[in-house]
Write a protein that binds this DNA or RNA. Sequence first.
DNA 1: CGTTGATACCAATCACTCCTATGCATAGAA
DNA 2: TTCTATGCATAGGAGTGATTGGTATCAACG
Lengths: 112, 112
Amino acid sequence: MIGINAKELVKGTAGMLVLRTLSGEALHGYALIQKLREKSGGLFDMKEGTLYPILHALEYEGLVEASWQGEGRRKRVYRITQSGQKQLASLQGEWERAKRAVDLVLGGAQYA
Amino acid sequence: MIGINAKELVKGTAGMLVLRTLSGEALHGYALIQKLREKSGGLFDMKEGTLYPILHALEYEGLVEASWQGEGRRKRVYRITQSGQKQLASLQGEWERAKRAVDLVLGGAQYA
DNA sequence: CGTTGATACCAATCACTCCTATGCATAGAA
DNA sequence: TTCTATGCATAGGAGTGATTGGTATCAACG
């Protein structure tokens, strides 16, 4: 599809949620999962096997920065970058557009 | 993820849009694509290579019925079944839930 | 008539996202 | 000390949907 495809619609949704969760505070992986579950009212229960590859990709793309903290049980704390903030804003825009388009087809919610 | 995972979030979105488009009237593939583009305000431009596998899967699952019409240039007209209507309602429910959960995390729209 | 473009159907293949399963390691509680 | 929660990470696979390309009909135009 062009413009918004059903794939785009989803693509990065998980990444977007991660970025958004990090935009409030720097977190390490495990805490991020809990925060996400909490903020979504228990609906999103992201698995570690889902999260870490996403975090690594985000880091590779420069959207988040990571640093090790603590001794013994090391924690890798992730912090959103300015670039990440921009990307988040862009993804949120896409999400709104996609949501609107789907709802148009569904004949559901009206938007002003 | 449990409950709604980011996959569920998307899963069948294309199928849901197809079912919804067929819920108004029986259509053949090509017309369905045009209708979908029209209803979405031009945002969804589904390719035939995307649509037909979906239609075949929906038919296989008994969610739509198909019949050949016309001579020479044959058209395969798809019609939603009762089972399809139920599935559509279920998918729409999932969509609403997923939408709400994402918006909760994004800290965006409020729902009553 | 031949070419072009719109209509119409379909299969094969591939890319991407995310899940499942698993492994390893540390800290605290029982 | 054994169990559970915490914490990071990779490998493999399932599912969705995009891309590509192939076939065929029909109308319009020259």
